[in-house]
Design a protein around this nucleic acid. Structure first.
Lengths: 200, 200
DNA sequence: ACCTGAACACCGTTCAAGT
DNA sequence: ACCTGAACACCGTTCAAGT
């Protein structure tokens, strides 16, 4: 077992730690991440991570940063067609977000925690802002075409995003007995659209 | 400092561990909870918790159970006036939930994780169901009076609850620059009500 | 019944040292 | 520059033993 050779000692240990770290948190949870075990897997001494990450938290922050970059790219792709109507664009970004969350639940948790930390690196905060700016943009253009009520677009986006965030939290916690997630996403999005419609 | 005497060795060590444990997770996070440190605080040996909790996870589960009982009681209180219109009842339960979440953020996280665990004790799952049944009840009576669209009330309640859950997640992660949480709660509730209104 | 102390197998982190 | 080994101060958990 563990068929991979070891192309390390070259300077790709940093990348190897990130990959192995992500796999570890998705399969066993952030709580059980062990630098020593990671080192064992990669066939290096347990002190070598120190060269690339000051401590365990630094590795987690680097993982979260990478997560925000990937989420941002996915949201940008979903929102890129500015010619489409609000409902379509919102549906696309919402599904992109939910899809990311379902595929990388531990990563998403890590990303939120990292942003929340008092001493979060500036880089991380910026990556987060950049990722969510793509959702925000859909709302401002929705207001421009009259599909969304007037008001502070940041607040409206936040309210809608909260619904998605909650859906994801509930779903990764397996709290859907029979209901398919795909159906629920559609329902949540529909309610958001109705809730944000200008009152006739 | 640490002015409390020690009325332990009586059989209240179990309760003392729960209290100290809750205080510890709210102030330092679940990750940093240490049974040995808890024992030190309480002036007992680090093996004595074993008598009351099989392991660390058992203590966390007991804390989560207690949390669900308190949340359930708060939601029941908020929802008890069945004569009030849907909007009023929904607002009350929503504010009760958000209020609990703000006051006990680490506890709420623990509660969700505990329910999610594959080997979660039956007792815990039941306490969770009981707590959320009070929110569910508001939706079924909302449908009865025509304030809420027809459809599976479980799904509708889930959709609305997701929005609250997301608001709470976002708020405990401090992602509200200027906006007051109280204002945002009101906005979320309003959007939920509008989103669930029957289409005339 | 309830608590203790020694012991075991793990951690993260530091430091002097090797190539 | 990058990695190593010994060492330190912590964990959770087990077990034989004390009252």
């Amino acid at each position: 077992m563990k068929a991979s050779p070891r192309p390390y000692h070259h300077g790709n240990l940093r990348q190897a730690l990130l990959s192995a770290g992500e796999r570890a948190i998705e399969s066993a949870g952030v709580l059980h991440l062990s630098l020593r075990e990671l080192s064992r897997e990669l066939g290096v001494s347990h002190t070598s991570p120190r060269r690339h990450f000051a401590d365990k938290q630094a590795l987690l922050d680097a993982l979260a940063l990478h997560g925000y970059e990937r989420l941002g790219a996915a949201l940008a792709r979903a929102a890129r067609d500015h010619g489409q109507p609000f409902n379509v664009r919102l549906t696309k970004v919402a599904r992109a977000f939910v899809s990311f969350a379902i595929q990388h639940p531990a990563m998403l948790g890590l990303m939120f925690e990292a942003k929340h930390r008092a001493d979060a690196p500036r880089e991380l905060l910026e990556a987060g802002e950049n990722a969510f700016a793509h959702i925000f943009g859909v709302f401002t253009s929705g207001q421009a075409t009259g599909a969304v009520v007037a008001g502070d677009p940041h607040r409206l986006a936040l309210v809608a995003f909260a619904a998605l965030q909650g859906l994801v939290t509930l779903s990764t916690n397996g709290k859907f007995k029979g209901a398919s997630l795909n159906v629920l996403i559609g329902e949540v999005i529909e309610r958001i659209i109705l809730g944000l419609r200008p009152r006739d």
